[in-house]
Design a protein around this nucleic acid. Structure first.
Lengths: 193, 193
DNA sequence: AATCTCATGTAATGGGTTACATGATTTT
DNA sequence: AAAATCATGTAACCCATTACATGAGATT
């Protein structure tokens, strides 16, 4: 009885905890809400949904294929599903493994290709700056919605995490550029003297 | 002529750019130097090394199996290998995909299981705090080595990135806990009144 | 008419970890 | 003598992305 789905299963259950979903709506939801920290493809989602039905954690039904309606399969979390979700929520999250290719390039190239590395760092800085703005916009939107009485705490927390993370990366990129430039200057001085 | 190895290839070339290595020494090197931002398993490293030899990017030789010496296979980067490494260094690094399971849990659980989420966040905060200290120790070590004339810029840059990142995550975790607690209090007040 | 988005799905491939196998040498 | 570390490697498995296939409905 293996799993085939890793954490996908719980992500699906989590989105369904709010309201019934289709595979497609879940995909869109993840893209909007989590794309910065999580991603799922259709190749994962559709088989995982079927698996969840088999396990009795969700129920499904097809939408009436009447005029002007395309086929849709809706999925709703069951009580057993809520139990499974809660069980997972109580477990300690696994420690994330990061893979920042830019760090490898900085690491290997700061000495041999400083110009290229500086360019990468500059672009990295800019990208993170843009992401910070994105997060700010998100947060503002949520603030406005909150005034209208709706609750967007969890979306806000996610966006806030993004803001902190991207700010850190932007600042690091700036600092790293300074260090590399400094080092280059020292080298050149030594060479000249 | 496919690749089978993703970025592993370049990591191997990068480590060999400094000095010849064995598969084992590369593994240890990565664990010490990059474990926070990159990881490779033997199952990746050994086949990739053979592939690199086939491609003419590295040369290999076995150490003499004389008394008190176990078999080791050394790998040295070739000129073609350096060319390949440089080519990769000039390319823009791919955008990293993050997967923070804790964010999913915060997202799904802030409402239904606030206590569990607060616990996760507390542990996340502590873990990141420890990592900050680790990074500080690294940086200090490098500073001392620098006084002795050695160059550890790239290691320093990596550690600095870690410091920035882990600090951001620690701060976010603190902030997130505050927000959740606040929200719980407001909810309870509303209920009481 | 063409194209875009909605909607569901499968197969191939890629990339990576884990478990296993083997054996020497070093440390306790 | 036992355990840990050094050292190399393979096979199984897992997880995920990408490409492909299909077709309806909406838009340009």
């Amino acid at each position: 009885m293996r799993d085939h789905t890793g954490k996908t299963k719980y992500l699906l259950l989590g989105t369904m905890a709010r309201c019934p979903q289709t595979g497609y709506s879940i995909k869109k939801w993840i893209e909007n809400e989590y794309s910065h920290f999580w991603q799922e493809s259709f190749g994962q989602i559709y088989p995982a949904l079927k698996e969840l039905v088999k396990e009795g954690l969700v129920e499904s039904w097809e939408s009436q294929v009447s005029k002007g309606k395309k086929k849709q399969i809706f999925y709703k979390i069951t009580e057993a599903g809520r139990g499974e979700l809660k069980k997972w929520l109580l477990e300690a999250p696994t420690i994330e493994k990061l893979r920042y290719e830019i760090l490898l390039k900085v690491s290997f190239g700061a000495d041999t290709e400083p110009e290229a590395v500086l360019k990468h760092l500059g672009e990295f800085e800019k990208r993170n700056e843009n992401l910070i703005h994105e997060m700010d916009d998100f947060i503002e939107t949520f603030e406005n919605l909150k005034i209208q009485g709706k609750d967007y705490t969890s979306s806000e927390l996610t966006a806030l995490c993004g803001k902190y993370l991207y700010t850190a990366m932007k600042n690091w990129a700036q600092e790293a550029q300074k260090i590399i430039i400094n080092r280059k200057m020292i080298k050149n001085e030594t060479k000249d003297s």
